[in-house]
Write a protein that binds this DNA or RNA. Sequence first.
DNA 1: GGAACTTCTGAGGAAGCTCTGAACAGCGGC
DNA 2: GCCGCTGTTCAGAGCTTCCTCAGAAGTTCC
Lengths: 255, 255
Amino acid sequence: MLEDNMNTPRSRGNGRPALTRPDGTPVRVLVVDDDPDLAEVLSGALRYEGWEVRTAGDGASAVAEARELLPDAVVLDVMLPDTDGFHVLRDLHTVKPDVCVLFLTARDAVEDRIAGITAGGDDYVTKPFSLEEVVARLRGLLRRAGMARQQDEGPRLVVGDLVMDEEAREVTRGGELIELSPTEFELLRFLMRNPRRVLSKAQILDRVWSYDFGGRAHVVELYISYLRKKVDAGREPMIHTVRGAGYVIKPVAGR
Amino acid sequence: MLEDNMNTPRSRGNGRPALTRPDGTPVRVLVVDDDPDLAEVLSGALRYEGWEVRTAGDGASAVAEARELLPDAVVLDVMLPDTDGFHVLRDLHTVKPDVCVLFLTARDAVEDRIAGITAGGDDYVTKPFSLEEVVARLRGLLRRAGMARQQDEGPRLVVGDLVMDEEAREVTRGGELIELSPTEFELLRFLMRNPRRVLSKAQILDRVWSYDFGGRAHVVELYISYLRKKVDAGREPMIHTVRGAGYVIKPVAGR
DNA sequence: GGAACTTCTGAGGAAGCTCTGAACAGCGGC
DNA sequence: GCCGCTGTTCAGAGCTTCCTCAGAAGTTCC
């Protein structure tokens, strides 16, 4: 049952306070990928963050679009039909010198020409990626670029006595350090970014696993069980099953 | 609580307090190199320090740009298409007598003329250089030229009982001297300038190794292992692997 | 011109991570 | 109480990531 969809105050997003520009207007992002399906999925996920999104399918229209939109960040496929992402990067910087860029690249292309990218503060993600990863990286870039937060949502996620420091990749509960594998970490991040909200296995699969993952929802159950062993171990449980609907994380008492 | 994102001097900062001019405005740097790719990477890295950066591709436009920007420092390639860096230096000094200059020069370049330069308080770096080196040298120049620090981040880096004196190139842990090779030193400096933050191998490669390094991320692992043998030897480890993400340095206890 | 040091490559192996399949447990319906 | 369905957990295979060693090539310094 979808309950609180109507009454929660939100521009178009997920109900959380959005990362915004200093003047309070939505962050503006340009997505550049020649695969329309992928561009669609990506821009959907970014709009869900409350951001203003436009897309482009090649380098030329990317630069043209950027000139008009003056985006705060660009998600940029390295392989484009007309040119490669690096030339686009340079053009983008002439259009807007302080723009952040998140590159999308094939795994085996990483070593070749990605070099130098992260030096300027930009970042990249290898295909196939998960949406959570893209969003998290983008949020990191934007935060470092000085995008203010509407409310005081720092670089740490807090749910009850459970705390996640995204930069240090550190999770503690009651001050006690919890070690997590990459997938466990991302799953927990997704849960913690949506506290008190029931997330279906399909949603989790779509966000946390990469878009080309063919497996079944069973992995979600498995990883939830891993998480419980580490996060809830011996303590009052915070991760709850909602039979037939999904999973939810919330602070213990009720609060 | 609204954070001080507006008034801290950084267009796309790294989260650390930036070196600023005495009046609190960002340090202004002019990058002069005829290779646009290199100029791009350099200016990106310097912007990441929170500094205001402009670029020029030859001597004439460098002087013109300097007249307008009145930069605190100039990163100046010795070999330029229209003239050499030494002439530009003289012109720069007529524009702004107290400007700091960091020369970029080929390894086999004329030693004596360079030596004359450094006597005047300026400095140089040989190509191919690492970005960490350029930034560190520039910071040294600026510090000596009286640029204030937002917070008092001196020429020593401290993480737990590990102390690095950048000027003396000396590292101690628990008072005990640790001898490091040049690359080891630079890698440790990069880690120590980003304590508690997970750094990916790509980031490390981009910052610590020179921009033309074609090698793989494997060297990073190798040098981390060297560092561990020297820094963590027998003690409680400070350098940690975050599987699938990178490496992080932090003080032993926790906080 | 040689010794000491530094840097990097390659290989082997250890450790950790992810996912599959299957058995098991608990809930709810009848 | 029995059965089916949903969710949980275990065990292990296959894979990826990371660590370390040994040695070759290059550099620096005497």
